[in-house]
Amino acid sequence: MSTEADIASMIQRVALRDRAALAQLYPAVSAKLFSVCLRILRNRPDAEDALQEVFIKIWQRADRFAAAGTSPVGWLVAVARNHAIDRLRSRRPASESLDEAHAIADIGRSPEAETVLKGEGRRVDRCMQELEPDRAGAVRSAYVEGLSYQELADRHSVPLNTMRTWLRRSLMKLRECLDR
Protein backbone atom coordinates (compact mmCIF):
# COMPACT_ATOMS: atom_id res chain seq x y z
CA MET A 1 0.00 0.00 0.00
CA SER A 2 1.32 3.41 -0.91
CA THR A 3 0.83 6.58 1.10
CA GLU A 4 0.60 10.07 -0.38
CA ALA A 5 4.23 10.62 0.63
CA ASP A 6 5.28 7.43 -1.18
CA ILE A 7 3.50 8.57 -4.32
CA ALA A 8 5.03 12.05 -4.06
CA SER A 9 8.47 10.52 -3.83
CA MET A 10 7.77 8.23 -6.80
CA ILE A 11 6.75 11.24 -8.92
CA GLN A 12 9.89 13.10 -7.86
CA ARG A 13 12.00 10.14 -8.90
CA VAL A 14 10.12 9.91 -12.19
CA ALA A 15 11.05 13.58 -12.71
CA LEU A 16 14.69 12.47 -12.38
CA ARG A 17 14.07 9.99 -15.23
CA ASP A 18 14.06 6.94 -12.97
CA ARG A 19 12.33 4.16 -14.91
CA ALA A 20 12.09 1.93 -11.86
CA ALA A 21 10.05 4.67 -10.15
CA LEU A 22 7.59 4.74 -13.07
CA ALA A 23 7.23 0.97 -12.77
CA GLN A 24 6.39 1.46 -9.07
CA LEU A 25 4.03 4.36 -9.66
CA TYR A 26 1.98 2.52 -12.28
CA PRO A 27 0.49 -0.24 -10.07
CA ALA A 28 -0.09 2.29 -7.27
CA VAL A 29 -2.27 4.67 -9.28
CA SER A 30 -3.23 3.14 -12.64
CA ALA A 31 -6.65 1.84 -11.47
CA LYS A 32 -7.61 5.33 -10.31
CA LEU A 33 -6.41 7.00 -13.49
CA PHE A 34 -8.04 4.35 -15.69
CA SER A 35 -11.31 5.06 -13.92
CA VAL A 36 -10.92 8.77 -14.76
CA CYS A 37 -10.36 7.95 -18.45
CA LEU A 38 -13.33 5.56 -18.52
CA ARG A 39 -15.77 7.92 -16.85
CA ILE A 40 -14.89 10.79 -19.16
CA LEU A 41 -14.40 8.92 -22.44
CA ARG A 42 -17.15 6.33 -21.84
CA ASN A 43 -15.46 3.90 -24.20
CA ARG A 44 -13.02 1.20 -23.15
CA PRO A 45 -10.59 1.10 -26.10
CA ASP A 46 -10.37 4.90 -26.01
CA ALA A 47 -9.80 4.90 -22.27
CA GLU A 48 -7.05 2.27 -22.59
CA ASP A 49 -5.24 4.35 -25.17
CA ALA A 50 -5.76 7.51 -23.12
CA LEU A 51 -4.29 5.81 -20.03
CA GLN A 52 -1.10 5.04 -21.98
CA GLU A 53 -0.89 8.66 -23.08
CA VAL A 54 -1.51 9.85 -19.53
CA PHE A 55 1.50 7.89 -18.26
CA ILE A 56 3.61 9.22 -21.11
CA LYS A 57 2.60 12.73 -20.02
CA ILE A 58 3.40 11.88 -16.39
CA TRP A 59 6.88 10.77 -17.49
CA GLN A 60 7.38 13.93 -19.51
CA ARG A 61 5.90 16.39 -17.04
CA ALA A 62 6.74 14.96 -13.63
CA ASP A 63 9.03 17.92 -12.99
CA ARG A 64 6.00 20.21 -13.06
CA PHE A 65 4.56 18.38 -10.07
CA ALA A 66 6.98 20.43 -7.98
CA ALA A 67 5.35 23.65 -9.10
CA ALA A 68 1.78 22.41 -8.78
CA GLY A 69 1.67 22.40 -4.98
CA THR A 70 -1.27 19.99 -4.87
CA SER A 71 -1.48 16.48 -3.45
CA PRO A 72 0.35 13.89 -5.55
CA VAL A 73 -2.80 11.89 -6.32
CA GLY A 74 -4.62 15.16 -7.03
CA TRP A 75 -1.91 16.14 -9.50
CA LEU A 76 -2.02 12.76 -11.25
CA VAL A 77 -5.83 12.87 -11.49
CA ALA A 78 -5.61 16.40 -12.92
CA VAL A 79 -3.19 15.19 -15.62
CA ALA A 80 -5.58 12.32 -16.46
CA ARG A 81 -8.71 14.51 -16.41
CA ASN A 82 -7.15 17.19 -18.60
CA HIS A 83 -5.99 14.61 -21.09
CA ALA A 84 -9.30 12.76 -21.20
CA ILE A 85 -11.30 16.00 -21.50
CA ASP A 86 -9.07 17.24 -24.34
CA ARG A 87 -9.51 13.93 -26.10
CA LEU A 88 -13.26 14.02 -25.57
CA ARG A 89 -13.57 17.59 -26.82
CA SER A 90 -11.47 16.91 -29.89
CA ARG A 91 -13.47 13.95 -31.09
CA ARG A 92 -16.62 14.42 -33.06
CA PRO A 93 -19.86 13.88 -31.18
CA ALA A 94 -20.25 10.13 -31.26
CA SER A 95 -22.89 7.75 -30.04
CA GLU A 96 -21.93 7.06 -26.48
CA SER A 97 -23.40 4.56 -24.13
CA LEU A 98 -24.21 6.33 -20.89
CA ASP A 99 -25.18 2.96 -19.47
CA GLU A 100 -21.58 1.86 -19.69
CA ALA A 101 -20.42 4.90 -17.75
CA HIS A 102 -22.97 4.31 -15.03
CA ALA A 103 -22.15 0.62 -14.78
CA ILE A 104 -18.52 1.53 -14.15
CA ALA A 105 -19.49 3.75 -11.24
CA ASP A 106 -20.90 0.75 -9.37
CA ILE A 107 -17.56 -1.00 -9.08
CA GLY A 108 -16.37 -0.64 -5.50
CA ARG A 109 -13.15 0.83 -4.28
CA SER A 110 -10.63 -1.21 -2.31
CA PRO A 111 -10.11 -0.29 1.37
CA GLU A 112 -6.43 0.36 0.61
CA ALA A 113 -7.42 2.89 -2.01
CA GLU A 114 -9.70 4.64 0.50
CA THR A 115 -6.74 5.16 2.80
CA VAL A 116 -4.58 6.69 0.11
CA LEU A 117 -7.28 8.89 -1.30
CA LYS A 118 -8.90 10.33 1.78
CA GLY A 119 -6.29 13.08 1.80
CA GLU A 120 -8.45 14.70 -0.87
CA GLY A 121 -10.21 16.94 1.61
CA ARG A 122 -13.86 17.03 2.48
CA ARG A 123 -14.52 20.75 2.75
CA VAL A 124 -15.94 21.06 -0.74
CA ASP A 125 -18.54 18.41 0.15
CA ARG A 126 -19.97 20.69 2.82
CA CYS A 127 -20.01 23.60 0.41
CA MET A 128 -21.68 21.49 -2.28
CA GLN A 129 -24.50 20.84 0.18
CA GLU A 130 -25.19 24.57 0.30
CA LEU A 131 -25.99 24.53 -3.42
CA GLU A 132 -29.41 23.58 -4.73
CA PRO A 133 -29.39 19.84 -5.40
CA ASP A 134 -29.77 20.03 -9.18
CA ARG A 135 -26.97 22.59 -9.41
CA ALA A 136 -24.68 20.56 -7.17
CA GLY A 137 -25.49 17.60 -9.42
CA ALA A 138 -24.52 19.60 -12.50
CA VAL A 139 -21.20 20.65 -10.93
CA ARG A 140 -20.51 17.06 -9.96
CA SER A 141 -21.25 15.57 -13.39
CA ALA A 142 -19.35 18.35 -15.15
CA TYR A 143 -16.26 17.52 -13.08
CA VAL A 144 -16.54 13.74 -12.87
CA GLU A 145 -17.80 12.97 -16.37
CA GLY A 146 -16.31 15.91 -18.23
CA LEU A 147 -19.69 16.97 -19.66
CA SER A 148 -19.79 20.14 -21.74
CA TYR A 149 -22.22 22.99 -21.07
CA GLN A 150 -24.39 21.70 -23.92
CA GLU A 151 -24.50 18.13 -22.62
CA LEU A 152 -25.33 19.38 -19.13
CA ALA A 153 -28.09 21.59 -20.53
CA ASP A 154 -29.54 18.62 -22.40
CA ARG A 155 -29.37 16.37 -19.38
CA HIS A 156 -31.08 18.89 -17.11
CA SER A 157 -33.46 20.04 -19.86
CA VAL A 158 -32.58 23.73 -19.49
CA PRO A 159 -31.35 26.23 -22.11
CA LEU A 160 -27.58 26.48 -22.65
CA ASN A 161 -27.36 29.98 -21.18
CA THR A 162 -29.25 28.91 -18.09
CA MET A 163 -26.76 26.09 -17.57
CA ARG A 164 -23.86 28.53 -17.96
CA THR A 165 -25.41 30.78 -15.34
CA TRP A 166 -26.08 27.83 -13.01
CA LEU A 167 -22.51 26.66 -13.10
CA ARG A 168 -20.93 30.11 -12.86
CA ARG A 169 -23.14 31.07 -9.92
CA SER A 170 -22.39 27.70 -8.33
CA LEU A 171 -18.66 28.26 -8.72
CA MET A 172 -18.98 31.72 -7.13
CA LYS A 173 -20.95 30.27 -4.22
CA LEU A 174 -18.41 27.48 -3.81
CA ARG A 175 -15.55 29.97 -3.78
CA GLU A 176 -17.32 32.08 -1.18
CA CYS A 177 -18.03 29.03 0.99
CA LEU A 178 -14.50 27.63 0.61
CA ASP A 179 -13.01 30.99 1.58
CA ARG A 180 -15.07 31.21 4.79
Partner: peptide
Protein backbone atom coordinates in the same frame (compact mmCIF):
# COMPACT_ATOMS: atom_id res chain seq x y z
CA UNK B 1 -7.96 21.72 -8.66
CA UNK B 2 -7.20 21.40 -5.00
CA UNK B 3 -10.69 22.53 -3.92
CA UNK B 4 -12.52 20.16 -6.24
CA UNK B 5 -10.19 17.21 -5.68
CA UNK B 6 -12.63 15.82 -3.09
CA UNK B 7 -14.77 14.86 -6.10
CA UNK B 8 -11.95 12.55 -7.20
CA UNK B 9 -13.42 10.07 -4.72
CA UNK B 10 -16.15 9.53 -7.34
CA UNK B 11 -13.63 7.75 -9.55
CA UNK B 12 -13.95 4.19 -8.29
CA UNK B 13 -10.83 2.21 -9.16
CA UNK B 14 -10.97 0.05 -12.28
CA UNK B 15 -7.98 -2.17 -13.04
CA UNK B 16 -6.68 -1.57 -16.56
CA UNK B 17 -5.82 -4.49 -18.87
CA UNK B 18 -2.66 -6.34 -17.86
CA UNK B 19 -0.69 -5.51 -21.01
CA UNK B 20 -1.09 -1.73 -20.67
CA UNK B 21 2.14 -1.06 -18.79
CA UNK B 22 4.24 -2.95 -21.33
CA UNK B 23 2.66 -0.76 -24.04
CA UNK B 24 3.52 2.40 -22.10
CA UNK B 25 7.15 1.26 -21.68
CA UNK B 26 7.41 0.41 -25.31
CA UNK B 27 5.96 3.79 -26.37
CA UNK B 28 8.32 5.62 -24.02
CA UNK B 29 11.52 3.64 -24.28
Amino acid sequence: EDNLSALNAEYAEVTPPAETYARIESRLF
